[in-house]
């Protein structure tokens, strides 16, 4: 994928071959179905809860959106997404390797990256981690063209529910690929060496 112009377009369902072809550093634009799921959802699944939707060849987004219920021009009540940026992914480290194995998910979207156990699960099952831009909530809300549904809303509340988003051109960067590369690990190592040098000045 190196040397390609513009982002790599990925469309749901995300096939294993397309996902395994991605390399750390690739810019991507995701279109199609994306499900949100964060802290309460991960714990619920780990505790034996029923999978509310089918994640096979799908995308899981670590996100707690601002969503309001409002009347459209036709007078129908519908969900409107105001802001939908990523939340920090490390909190899901204890759950994600099992979740990847169990759900068949191909893309995990979040911010900050995940640990080596998750990286190993991604390599084994054919999954990548896409870094969304933390704080870019308005832009990501605009890429959500439709809220197709919501699961576990009563149980978890709006910020923790599993939202069914249909997105177009959702932007991110592949930060952990299915070949065992993590940009986060590389940057942490390089910056530690740079810090040593600054300290000895």
């Amino acid at each position: 994928m190196k040397g390609s112009i513009g982002p790599v377009e990925l469309t749901y369902p995300f096939g294993e071959r397309a996902v395994r072809a991605l390399e750390a550093g690739d810019a991507v634009a995701i279109s199609g179905r994306v499900y949100t799921g964060r802290d309460k959802f991960h714990k619920y699944i780990a505790d034996g809860g029923r999978m509310p939707v089918d994640f096979r060849d799908g995308a899981l987004y670590h996100c707690g959106p601002v969503v309001v219920r409002e009347k459209g021009a036709d007078g129908e009540l519908r969900w409107s997404v105001r802001s939908a940026g990523p939340t920090t992914s490390v909190r899901e480290n204890p759950y994600e390797p099992d979740f990847i194995a169990k759900s068949g998910v191909r893309i995990v979207i979040g911010k900050g990256g995940m640990d080596s156990a998750t990286l190993a699960a991604m390599k084994r099952h054919g999954c990548v981690y896409v870094q969304a831009v933390g704080g870019a909530g308005a832009l990501y809300a605009e890429s959500v063209k439709r809220v197709a549904g919501v699961s576990l809303l009563d149980e978890f509340g709006a910020a923790e529910a599993v939202w069914h988003f249909d997105v177009v051109g959702f932007r991110g960067v592949v930060a952990m690929d299915s070949r065992g590369r993590s940009l986060f690990a590389e940057v942490a190592e390089r910056s530690a060496r740079a810090l040593d040098e600054l300290r000895s000045r």
């Binding site: 996100c63 707690g64 105001r82 831009v133 704080g135 870019a136 909530g137 308005a138 832009l139 809300a141």
Partner: peptide
């Protein structure tokens, strides 16, 4: 680029630029 586009959009629409207010 994503950050700058996000800021321009939020400023235009008046939406929270980040969902963690």
């Amino acid at each position: 680029r994503t950050i700058l586009d996000n800021c321009a959009l939020a400023s235009k629409t008046g939406s929270p630029l980040c969902q963690d207010t």
